[in-house]
Amino acid sequence: MYKIVKKEVLNSVVVMMEIEAPYVAARCEAGQFVIVRVDEDGERIPLTIADFDRERNTVEIIFQVVGYSTTLMAKLNEGDYLQDFVGPLGQPAPLNKEWKRVIGVAGGVGAAPLYPQAKKLAEQGTKVDVIIGGRTAELVLLKEKFEKFCDNVYIMTDDGSLGEQGVVTKKLQELLDAGVKYDHAIAIGPLIMMKFVVALTKKPEYNLPTAVSLNPIMIDGTGMCGGCRVTVGGETKFACVDGPDFDGFEVDFDQCMKRQTFFKEEEHECMMKLQADQMQN
């Protein structure tokens, strides 16, 4: 069992938890993830390591409440325990020390997995700018945390309630057109956002190499089920062991998007049942 030592509700749909997990805390690196089971019959869900503290033996996760398991998890409080918490899984993000300046692009809860990568880049001396997008001001995550070490933090909201109105790619294109020189981009967010970022950075006039973080449906997270397969550069990869970060120029985003919907029906039924149970209690 893994103790929740801290819980913070970041906005109406996103929760941060700090979990006591000595093995994970001791070895994890930016870009890696854990698999969590909330309770005895729980499903295994992957979540990115958003931060860690090797001295306190803790790991932070930041998750959006989207369905059954995340709903259950959000109900837990400080002092409660998670049934299972295993990691660190996946490859550390390939962050090159030679990069002089990097642009991070995050959408929604994608700011959480971007944070440890951006922080590590800053620590190694790379200049980091980030663009954080959210539907409204409330859903823009981690602005203050990024501001501590980023040169520029640009905020984009759909309704203009914070920063500028528009999507993240609008700001990215502005920066690129203004001639800001980046060695690399890292885009993390909904697949559709990453697809559009790559469509932009891949244009011959920009040709800005872009890493993306894929989030296919996983079970074991150790290469055992093959359920997390994605097509990268025409080859099948297991995102849990070969990724989750990949060269965005090579990713078949349409296939990824399709595969995420495999269990939509069953997930929905499960959620309906949870809601019905809650109404009764």
Binding site: Y23, R27, D84, F85, V86, G87, P88, L89, T222
Partner: peptide, 9 residues
Amino acid sequence: TNVVIGRSL
């Protein structure tokens, strides 16, 4: 349980 050798240790 929950220890992946090659990752956790």
